[in-house]
Design a protein around this nucleic acid. Structure first.
Lengths: 133, 133
DNA sequence: GTATCTGTTCTATTATTTGTATAACAGCTA
DNA sequence: TAGCTGTTATACAAATAATAGAACAGATAC
Protein backbone atom coordinates (compact mmCIF):
# COMPACT_ATOMS: atom_id res chain seq x y z
CA UNK A 1 0.00 0.00 0.00
CA UNK A 2 2.25 2.80 -1.18
CA UNK A 3 -0.64 4.89 -2.52
CA UNK A 4 0.47 8.30 -3.67
CA UNK A 5 -1.89 11.26 -3.39
CA UNK A 6 -1.96 14.59 -5.21
CA UNK A 7 -3.17 17.15 -2.71
CA UNK A 8 -3.27 19.82 -5.44
CA UNK A 9 -5.64 17.79 -7.60
CA UNK A 10 -9.24 18.78 -8.20
CA UNK A 11 -10.15 15.18 -7.38
CA UNK A 12 -11.17 14.89 -3.69
CA UNK A 13 -8.72 13.02 -1.48
CA UNK A 14 -11.22 10.34 -0.49
CA UNK A 15 -11.93 9.76 -4.18
CA UNK A 16 -8.23 9.40 -4.97
CA UNK A 17 -7.83 6.83 -2.19
CA UNK A 18 -10.84 4.95 -3.53
CA UNK A 19 -9.47 5.03 -7.10
CA UNK A 20 -5.98 3.83 -6.14
CA UNK A 21 -7.39 0.89 -4.18
CA UNK A 22 -9.72 -0.10 -7.04
CA UNK A 23 -6.73 -0.02 -9.39
CA UNK A 24 -4.71 -2.12 -6.96
CA UNK A 25 -7.48 -4.73 -7.01
CA UNK A 26 -7.60 -4.73 -10.81
CA UNK A 27 -3.80 -4.95 -10.94
CA UNK A 28 -3.89 -7.96 -8.65
CA UNK A 29 -1.82 -6.21 -6.01
CA UNK A 30 -4.78 -6.60 -3.66
CA UNK A 31 -6.43 -10.01 -3.80
CA UNK A 32 -9.56 -11.28 -2.12
CA UNK A 33 -9.18 -11.35 1.64
CA UNK A 34 -6.30 -8.91 1.71
CA UNK A 35 -6.49 -6.56 4.69
CA UNK A 36 -6.32 -2.82 4.19
CA UNK A 37 -4.53 -0.60 6.71
CA UNK A 38 -6.65 0.79 9.51
CA UNK A 39 -8.19 4.18 8.85
CA UNK A 40 -6.09 5.77 11.56
CA UNK A 41 -2.87 4.19 10.35
CA UNK A 42 -3.43 5.14 6.71
CA UNK A 43 -4.34 8.64 7.84
CA UNK A 44 -0.98 8.92 9.56
CA UNK A 45 0.87 7.50 6.55
CA UNK A 46 -0.81 9.91 4.15
CA UNK A 47 -0.67 12.81 6.60
CA UNK A 48 -4.42 13.34 6.38
CA UNK A 49 -7.33 13.04 8.77
CA UNK A 50 -8.57 9.53 9.48
CA UNK A 51 -12.14 10.66 8.81
CA UNK A 52 -11.18 11.23 5.19
CA UNK A 53 -9.81 7.68 4.97
CA UNK A 54 -12.98 6.43 6.62
CA UNK A 55 -15.02 8.17 3.93
CA UNK A 56 -13.01 6.42 1.20
CA UNK A 57 -13.45 3.02 2.88
CA UNK A 58 -17.17 3.59 3.34
CA UNK A 59 -17.43 4.40 -0.36
CA UNK A 60 -15.56 1.22 -1.29
CA UNK A 61 -17.88 -0.76 0.98
CA UNK A 62 -21.04 0.72 -0.52
CA UNK A 63 -19.73 -0.05 -4.00
CA UNK A 64 -19.06 -3.65 -3.07
CA UNK A 65 -15.27 -3.66 -3.27
CA UNK A 66 -14.52 -4.37 0.37
CA UNK A 67 -16.15 -5.62 3.54
CA UNK A 68 -15.63 -3.96 6.88
CA UNK A 69 -15.86 -5.84 10.16
CA UNK A 70 -15.16 -4.43 13.56
CA UNK A 71 -13.09 -7.54 13.99
CA UNK A 72 -10.90 -7.91 10.94
CA UNK A 73 -11.07 -4.35 9.64
CA UNK A 74 -11.33 -3.55 5.94
CA UNK A 75 -10.87 -6.59 3.70
CA UNK A 76 -11.02 -6.91 -0.08
CA UNK A 77 -14.31 -8.57 -0.81
CA UNK A 78 -13.76 -10.37 -4.06
CA UNK A 79 -10.90 -11.04 -6.38
CA UNK A 80 -11.18 -9.88 -9.93
CA UNK A 81 -12.75 -12.33 -12.36
CA UNK A 82 -14.26 -14.42 -9.61
CA UNK A 83 -17.90 -13.41 -9.66
CA UNK A 84 -20.63 -11.41 -11.34
CA UNK A 85 -20.60 -7.63 -10.81
CA UNK A 86 -22.98 -5.82 -8.52
CA UNK A 87 -26.55 -5.60 -9.76
CA UNK A 88 -27.11 -2.58 -11.97
CA UNK A 89 -23.43 -1.82 -12.14
CA UNK A 90 -22.88 -2.52 -15.82
CA UNK A 91 -25.38 -0.01 -17.17
CA UNK A 92 -24.20 2.91 -15.09
CA UNK A 93 -20.59 2.02 -15.79
CA UNK A 94 -21.06 1.82 -19.54
CA UNK A 95 -22.65 5.25 -19.48
CA UNK A 96 -19.51 6.65 -17.91
CA UNK A 97 -17.38 4.69 -20.38
CA UNK A 98 -19.30 6.25 -23.24
CA UNK A 99 -18.67 9.75 -21.92
CA UNK A 100 -14.96 9.10 -21.41
CA UNK A 101 -14.42 7.56 -24.85
CA UNK A 102 -16.43 10.34 -26.49
CA UNK A 103 -14.06 12.85 -24.94
CA UNK A 104 -11.05 11.23 -26.58
CA UNK A 105 -12.73 10.88 -29.98
CA UNK A 106 -13.99 14.46 -29.86
CA UNK A 107 -10.43 15.58 -29.08
CA UNK A 108 -9.19 13.97 -32.27
CA UNK A 109 -7.93 10.57 -31.16
CA UNK A 110 -8.89 7.91 -33.66
CA UNK A 111 -11.12 5.05 -32.49
CA UNK A 112 -8.25 2.72 -33.34
CA UNK A 113 -5.90 4.67 -31.08
CA UNK A 114 -8.47 4.66 -28.29
CA UNK A 115 -9.06 0.93 -28.60
CA UNK A 116 -5.32 0.37 -28.57
CA UNK A 117 -4.93 2.32 -25.34
CA UNK A 118 -7.82 0.48 -23.70
CA UNK A 119 -6.26 -2.80 -24.74
CA UNK A 120 -2.93 -1.83 -23.23
CA UNK A 121 -4.53 -0.92 -19.92
CA UNK A 122 -6.51 -4.15 -19.79
CA UNK A 123 -3.39 -6.11 -20.63
CA UNK A 124 -1.59 -4.53 -17.70
CA UNK A 125 -4.41 -5.74 -15.45
CA UNK A 126 -4.35 -9.27 -16.85
CA UNK A 127 -0.59 -9.54 -16.46
CA UNK A 128 0.51 -10.83 -13.04
CA UNK A 129 2.90 -8.74 -11.02
CA UNK A 130 6.45 -9.79 -11.90
CA UNK A 131 5.96 -11.58 -15.20
CA UNK A 132 7.84 -9.41 -17.67
CA UNK A 133 11.32 -10.75 -18.36
CA UNK B 1 -29.96 19.62 -29.41
CA UNK B 2 -32.49 17.60 -27.46
CA UNK B 3 -30.12 17.11 -24.50
CA UNK B 4 -31.82 15.40 -21.58
CA UNK B 5 -30.77 16.21 -18.03
CA UNK B 6 -31.16 14.29 -14.79
CA UNK B 7 -31.71 16.87 -12.08
CA UNK B 8 -31.57 14.16 -9.40
CA UNK B 9 -28.13 13.00 -10.47
CA UNK B 10 -25.04 13.52 -8.34
CA UNK B 11 -23.35 14.82 -11.48
CA UNK B 12 -23.56 18.63 -11.59
CA UNK B 13 -25.88 20.06 -14.24
CA UNK B 14 -23.13 22.00 -16.00
CA UNK B 15 -21.09 18.77 -16.17
CA UNK B 16 -24.01 16.87 -17.68
CA UNK B 17 -24.42 19.55 -20.36
CA UNK B 18 -20.72 19.37 -21.10
CA UNK B 19 -20.80 15.55 -21.30
CA UNK B 20 -23.84 15.43 -23.61
CA UNK B 21 -22.26 17.94 -26.01
CA UNK B 22 -18.95 16.05 -26.07
CA UNK B 23 -20.86 12.87 -26.86
CA UNK B 24 -22.78 14.67 -29.61
CA UNK B 25 -19.46 15.69 -31.17
CA UNK B 26 -18.13 12.12 -30.98
CA UNK B 27 -21.39 10.83 -32.43
CA UNK B 28 -21.10 13.20 -35.34
CA UNK B 29 -24.35 14.93 -34.44
CA UNK B 30 -22.35 18.13 -33.94
CA UNK B 31 -19.75 18.76 -36.63
CA UNK B 32 -17.09 21.45 -36.88
CA UNK B 33 -18.63 24.89 -37.24
CA UNK B 34 -22.00 23.87 -35.84
CA UNK B 35 -23.52 26.59 -33.69
CA UNK B 36 -24.72 25.82 -30.18
CA UNK B 37 -27.83 27.47 -28.76
CA UNK B 38 -27.27 30.71 -26.87
CA UNK B 39 -26.79 30.32 -23.14
CA UNK B 40 -30.03 32.13 -22.43
CA UNK B 41 -32.02 30.06 -24.94
CA UNK B 42 -30.67 26.72 -23.70
CA UNK B 43 -31.33 27.84 -20.16
CA UNK B 44 -34.97 28.39 -21.07
CA UNK B 45 -35.20 25.05 -22.91
CA UNK B 46 -33.71 23.14 -19.97
CA UNK B 47 -35.55 25.20 -17.38
CA UNK B 48 -32.31 26.14 -15.65
CA UNK B 49 -30.40 29.33 -15.04
CA UNK B 50 -28.38 30.62 -17.98
CA UNK B 51 -25.33 31.00 -15.73
CA UNK B 52 -25.25 27.24 -15.38
CA UNK B 53 -25.25 26.88 -19.17
CA UNK B 54 -22.54 29.51 -19.37
CA UNK B 55 -20.43 27.50 -16.97
CA UNK B 56 -20.78 24.42 -19.18
CA UNK B 57 -19.84 26.39 -22.30
CA UNK B 58 -16.86 27.96 -20.56
CA UNK B 59 -15.70 24.49 -19.56
CA UNK B 60 -16.04 23.25 -23.14
CA UNK B 61 -14.07 26.27 -24.34
CA UNK B 62 -11.24 25.75 -21.84
CA UNK B 63 -11.04 22.10 -22.87
CA UNK B 64 -10.79 23.01 -26.53
CA UNK B 65 -14.10 21.63 -27.76
CA UNK B 66 -15.71 24.89 -28.82
CA UNK B 67 -14.87 28.49 -29.59
CA UNK B 68 -16.92 31.37 -28.31
CA UNK B 69 -17.16 34.70 -30.10
CA UNK B 70 -19.28 37.62 -29.09
CA UNK B 71 -20.29 37.62 -32.71
CA UNK B 72 -21.16 34.07 -33.68
CA UNK B 73 -21.75 32.60 -30.24
CA UNK B 74 -20.57 29.10 -29.32
CA UNK B 75 -19.30 27.04 -32.24
CA UNK B 76 -17.86 23.53 -32.36
CA UNK B 77 -14.17 23.99 -32.83
CA UNK B 78 -13.08 20.85 -34.57
CA UNK B 79 -14.71 17.79 -35.98
CA UNK B 80 -13.71 14.41 -34.68
CA UNK B 81 -10.72 12.78 -36.37
CA UNK B 82 -9.54 15.99 -37.98
CA UNK B 83 -6.61 17.06 -35.85
CA UNK B 84 -4.24 16.23 -33.00
CA UNK B 85 -5.65 16.47 -29.47
CA UNK B 86 -4.82 19.29 -27.09
CA UNK B 87 -1.33 19.24 -25.68
CA UNK B 88 -1.10 17.13 -22.54
CA UNK B 89 -4.56 15.73 -23.03
CA UNK B 90 -3.63 12.12 -23.73
CA UNK B 91 -1.77 11.47 -20.50
CA UNK B 92 -4.41 12.86 -18.19
CA UNK B 93 -7.13 11.11 -20.17
CA UNK B 94 -5.43 7.74 -20.07
CA UNK B 95 -5.12 8.06 -16.32
CA UNK B 96 -8.89 8.43 -16.07
CA UNK B 97 -9.36 5.55 -18.52
CA UNK B 98 -7.22 3.36 -16.31
CA UNK B 99 -9.32 4.17 -13.26
CA UNK B 100 -12.58 3.48 -15.09
CA UNK B 101 -11.44 0.17 -16.58
CA UNK B 102 -10.01 -0.91 -13.24
CA UNK B 103 -13.42 -0.38 -11.71
CA UNK B 104 -15.04 -2.80 -14.14
CA UNK B 105 -12.35 -5.44 -13.78
CA UNK B 106 -12.39 -5.19 -9.99
CA UNK B 107 -16.17 -5.66 -10.12
CA UNK B 108 -15.74 -8.94 -11.92
CA UNK B 109 -16.12 -8.06 -15.60
CA UNK B 110 -13.61 -9.95 -17.70
CA UNK B 111 -11.09 -7.91 -19.71
CA UNK B 112 -12.62 -9.47 -22.81
CA UNK B 113 -16.06 -8.23 -21.83
CA UNK B 114 -14.68 -4.77 -21.13
CA UNK B 115 -12.87 -4.61 -24.43
CA UNK B 116 -16.02 -5.74 -26.19
CA UNK B 117 -18.05 -2.95 -24.61
CA UNK B 118 -15.42 -0.36 -25.46
CA UNK B 119 -15.43 -1.60 -29.03
CA UNK B 120 -19.21 -1.32 -29.25
CA UNK B 121 -19.13 2.27 -28.01
CA UNK B 122 -16.38 3.25 -30.43
CA UNK B 123 -18.24 1.59 -33.26
CA UNK B 124 -21.32 3.68 -32.47
CA UNK B 125 -19.14 6.80 -32.77
CA UNK B 126 -17.63 5.71 -36.08
CA UNK B 127 -21.02 4.89 -37.58
CA UNK B 128 -22.69 7.86 -39.30
CA UNK B 129 -26.10 8.91 -38.14
CA UNK B 130 -28.69 7.07 -40.21
CA UNK B 131 -26.73 4.16 -41.54
CA UNK B 132 -28.43 1.18 -39.97
CA UNK B 133 -31.04 -0.39 -42.22
C1' DG C 1 -6.83 -6.73 34.46
C1' DT C 2 -4.77 -2.96 31.95
C1' DA C 3 -3.44 -0.77 27.99
C1' DT C 4 -3.79 -0.26 23.19
C1' DC C 5 -5.79 -0.36 18.75
C1' DT C 6 -9.78 -0.64 16.18
C1' DG C 7 -14.35 0.70 13.88
C1' DT C 8 -18.20 3.64 14.72
C1' DT C 9 -20.76 7.63 15.76
C1' DC C 10 -21.54 12.40 17.02
C1' DT C 11 -20.86 17.28 16.76
C1' DA C 12 -18.52 21.21 14.94
C1' DT C 13 -15.99 24.40 11.94
C1' DT C 14 -13.91 26.20 7.68
C1' DA C 15 -13.54 26.43 2.78
C1' DT C 16 -15.12 25.33 -1.65
C1' DT C 17 -18.55 24.09 -5.01
C1' DT C 18 -23.08 24.32 -7.06
C1' DG C 19 -27.09 26.59 -8.67
C1' DT C 20 -29.88 30.45 -8.71
C1' DA C 21 -30.72 35.40 -8.98
C1' DT C 22 -30.42 40.29 -10.39
C1' DA C 23 -28.15 43.79 -12.66
C1' DA C 24 -25.45 46.14 -15.91
C1' DC C 25 -22.47 46.87 -20.14
C1' DA C 26 -21.16 46.34 -25.00
C1' DG C 27 -21.62 44.53 -29.57
C1' DC C 28 -24.32 42.80 -33.25
C1' DT C 29 -28.57 42.70 -36.00
C1' DA C 30 -33.42 43.07 -37.69
C1' DT D 1 -34.53 51.86 -31.89
C1' DA D 2 -35.32 47.42 -29.97
C1' DG D 3 -33.92 42.94 -29.10
C1' DC D 4 -30.65 39.32 -28.52
C1' DT D 5 -26.10 38.15 -27.50
C1' DG D 6 -21.73 37.24 -24.60
C1' DT D 7 -19.54 38.98 -20.52
C1' DT D 8 -18.86 40.46 -15.96
C1' DA D 9 -19.99 41.54 -11.26
C1' DT D 10 -22.19 40.69 -6.96
C1' DA D 11 -25.04 38.11 -3.89
C1' DC D 12 -27.24 34.22 -1.67
C1' DA D 13 -28.59 29.38 -0.14
C1' DA D 14 -27.50 24.69 -0.15
C1' DA D 15 -24.44 20.99 -0.47
C1' DT D 16 -19.83 19.02 -0.35
C1' DA D 17 -14.97 18.38 1.30
C1' DA D 18 -11.69 18.20 4.86
C1' DT D 19 -10.37 18.81 9.30
C1' DA D 20 -10.92 18.34 14.33
C1' DG D 21 -12.09 16.61 18.95
C1' DA D 22 -14.54 13.52 21.73
C1' DA D 23 -16.59 9.36 23.17
C1' DC D 24 -18.02 4.34 23.11
C1' DA D 25 -17.47 -0.67 22.43
C1' DG D 26 -15.16 -4.70 20.87
C1' DA D 27 -10.88 -7.02 20.02
C1' DT D 28 -6.01 -7.87 21.06
C1' DA D 29 -1.41 -7.83 23.48
C1' DC D 30 1.14 -7.48 27.61
Amino acid sequence: MQLTLDLDSEVPIYQQIRDRIVEAIADGDLTAGAALPSTRQLGVDLAINFHTVNKAYDLLRRQGFIRINRKSGAVVRRDRLSGPPEAGFADEWQSRLRTLLAEAVAQGLSPQEVQQRAGNVLESFATPKGSMT
